[in-house]
Structures are given as C-alpha cells and as structure tokens.
Design a protein around this nucleic acid. Structure first.
Lengths: 243, 243
DNA sequence: TATTATTGTAACATAATGATACAATAAATC
DNA sequence: GATTTATTGTATCATTATGTTACAATAATA
C-alpha cells in the first residue's frame, strides 16, 4: 500500500497480493503533556478521519503486518504491539466512506472492488515513546497527527469503539503487567510515571502508595537525580530493568 | 458446512458463500469429575484430531459463527463464548492434514482449493455445563468427545497451543470476572466451586479464605442444603444471581 | 538565610488475605 | 440412642497489602 508512486496508483489499489476481507487497525498510543494521545489519519481531499491501518500480505505474519503499519506511521522499528480484539460484525463496515475517498481521488471503483467488500479488522494497540515518533502520512492521506483522546474528530466506521476497546484493554493490563513503561522515555521520574498511570486510569493515585507499589515490583533502577532548575528538591530518575 | 447431505458433498465443500482464508476455532471447556475437559473432533477415516471449528459466512457476524460452531457440537443454544486471540502466523497452517483428510474421503482437491489455502484463525473459548452437552460429530468426523487436558491426543496444526492460550486467558479472567460459574450446573456447593477454581488454576486454595472471598462478591444466593447421603454435615447449595 | 515547591519516606490506619481452630451436623456403626 | 467419622461453616488471629497523614530533605529563588 505504500510502495506505489502516485495518488492515481494508490487509489487504484487492487488488493492483489493481499488477503481479502481482512484488515488491521492499529491504535498507536503516545503520552505527552500529561495527555494520552492517538495517531489519526485524514484521507486525501476528504474530511474522513481513521485509524492507521492496512492489509495482510498473502505471505505475511499478522504481527509483521501490524508492525509494518506502525513503522510506516511512526518511523519506529521497535514498538510495543499487542493484538487485542477482532471486530467482525457485518454492519461494522460501511463502504460509502471508501467509495467517497476513491471518488475524491478521481477513481471510479467497481462495486466488487477489494476495498468495498466487507472487512473484518484485527485490532492492535501500540505503545510508543512520543518524543521518538515522526508522524508520517501516506500518499492516500492529507495528514497523520496526534489527537488527545477527548478531542478527537469523528472517525469513520467503528474506529471510535476500536479505540475505546483498546483503552479498556490497556487499563486492564496496566496493573498486572508493566506495559505502561513503553510510553515513557528511557529515563523518567516517579512523578512522570505516576502521571502516566493517572492519565490512563483517569483517577488520582496517592503518591506514597504508588511509589511503594511500583518500587516493590523490583524492576526499576534508580539513576541520577534530575535537576530541572525549579526551586524544589530534585527527583530521582529511574530506568526500567528487565532482569 | 453442516447442511449438506452426504460425505461426498461434505468433503467437496467449495467454500462458496464463506470468507476465504479465515476460520474460527472454538475451545469448548467442560468440567466433570474434578477435571477440566475440552471437546475434540476426529476426522473421518484418519487419526487427525482437531478443535471444533468452522468458517464465516459472507453475511454472518463473527460471534454468530462461533455460536453456530458451539451449537453444532454441543446442542446448546446459550453458551458463554469469548473471543480470545487470532492465530495468524504464515507457518501455522499446514495443508497436508486437510489434503489427507479429503483423500481419505475420496476427494481429489485442486491445489488452490478453499481448504488448502493459508488460514488465519480466530480463537474463541466456550464454557459449558458438561451435564447438558451432547457431543455431536459431523459427517466429516468419526467422533466428537471430551478429553482431559492432560490426556489429549496429538492435534493438527497449532491447535494445542490454541488450547493453551485459551486456558491462559481463562485463568487470567477467572479472578476479576466470575466466568467460572458458567462451567457449573445451576445449583452448586461451595466445595464444587472451589474444586473448579483449583482445577483451572491448578493449585490448592484455602477453604475459609475462598468462601469469604466468593461470598463477598455478593453474587451468590444460598438455597437449601444438599443431603448427599454421606456421613457428614450437608453443605448449602448456591445459585448465581446477576442482580 | 529565609522562602517556596516538591520529593522521599516514615508512621500509622484500614482492608484484604493467609492460616489455624473448633463447633455443628448428617449418616453410619455400635 | 450414644458414638464415631468426615466434612462444613465460621470465628479468630496473623500477615500482608493498601490507604492516609505527616514531616524532614532539598534545589533554586528572593
């Protein structure tokens, strides 16, 4: 979907070489300014917003396809990726946006065009270091940008509920696992980590209890202090160690 | 796949009307004799064992397809079903068993036959009341039977790891949710429930703590006592109430 | 040197869970 | 009918985890 040269070729994508009726949507989460954000795409010459997505090549692993989508949008080769749900209701797929997108790009698709069929979509979520990402649109898209969760444009199809389900899964797994660390830079303060948890869980946590619990996991290594220049005690920096 | 009349017709299943490259496998769990069991199928005139599975009709919801598979194998219309993972590695699908199965049933499939393509399989697990199930094979199968988890035959493809992943998911969800109740009959004793938990989690639990925790959930209703005829105090029966 | 904002952690309170103990009791045995 | 046996229901205490308050330490500023 990205190795073609012109918009014309892009939008006449035939689906050859790809598995039909099956798509991948990737909810790419980033954390910045005490806000959880997702990467969204806007289709060329339309007002249709959508999640980054793609199709699966005939000889490609699912995870590889998801990784490929994440790489194309972020520029990152090593992101935390997890498959979380498959969206397969018959009425989830409305071909009219796609038809409109193709028309807006001067293509008249057949009614049985690859892109106008029913699609079952496998949902992945990615956790990335916001500061390392270069959001990159595709030839089919005007833009690729970060949006705060509570300031998103309307999305095509069921993409809003895909994001909600991803968020739900993220919240549920945050406790047992330590996947939250994948949203921070390599070194971070306890306050930054707590901020992240509070944002994802959407509730305040008590500082002493949070610090005690996280440190008890035994997976953080304390490094130097971080002198921010502010007029107060400097916090320690921590780093994740995967013993 | 089940509305045809003869083995000949069955095994010449063309896939018309179904989504290609996409399958559903259902891990049907039952609990009996203090053992967790799964329903497995054996293909006609072969030694190939497999999970109950099927394909998705062009106009069918994923969940409906899974429900249909569960119904066909158990006779139950109302089972607890949950989608847990998609298995989509390219090398997971080995067409030789299917080719052998078709040959054993006097069919010579084309190389590009629907069933010999790569398949991505959506895993569901079902929790059923063992006592209510009538395991029913299909015309393609010699048998459909319960097997204890630690006494299963070798399974085709990656079906063993599908079962393992299902079990892993079941264990993880047992704690927060109360999905374990779907494996018992309507009325059950605390001891039976504890047995179930111990079997699934594969570890002993302390009786007083277990009872206290479960009752604290506030979702059990105590009914009459159960006089089993044994020479000891009769336990109470409980019933799940979904307030 | 005092002030300010924030951090690190001690200390205590409360809740959840782990463990032991024992009375209650349904049926069989004497 | 009293005694025995196995199991259940639950009280009680111990331990651990979590919630909450308090306060000293400290980096920069005034």
């Amino acid at each position: 979907m990205t190795d073609k040269k012109t918009i014309k070729v892009e939008t006449t994508f035939s689906g050859a070489g790809y598995i039909p009726n099956l798509a991948i949507d990737v909810v790419i989460f980033g954390f910045h300014d005490k806000q959880l954000k997702v990467l969204l795409m806007k289709y060329n010459r339309t007002e249709f917003y959508a999640l980054p997505g793609g199709f699966i090549k005939n000889n490609e692993n699912l995870d590889t396809a998801a990784m490929r989508v994440a790489l194309e949008r972020t520029g990152l080769t090593d992101v935390f990726l997890e498959q979380f749900y498959v969206f397969g209701d018959i009425n989830r797929y409305d071909p009219t946006p796609f038809a409109a997108i193709m028309e807006a790009n001067d293509t008249k698709p057949d009614k049985d065009h690859f892109l106008l069929q029913r699609f079952i979509s496998i949902g992945y979520f990615a956790l990335v270091d916001f500061t390392k990402v270069t959001p990159t649109p595709d030839k089919l898209f005007d833009s690729c940008n970060w949006y705060e969760l509570n300031a998103m444009p309307a999305l095509i199809q069921d993409h809003t509920s895909i994001i909600n389900k991803a968020l739900e899964t993220l919240r549920a797994k945050l406790d047992d696992k330590l996947i939250g660390f994948n949203l921070l830079e390599e070194n971070f303060t306890m306050g930054e980590l707590q901020n992240l948890y509070e944002t994802i869980l959407d509730k305040k946590l008590l500082r002493p209890a949070f610090q005690r619990k996280i440190l008890a996991l035994g997976i953080l290594e304390r490094i130097a202090k971080k002198y921010s220049g502010a007029a107060h005690k400097a916090p320690y920096l921590y780093r994740f160690v995967s013993k």
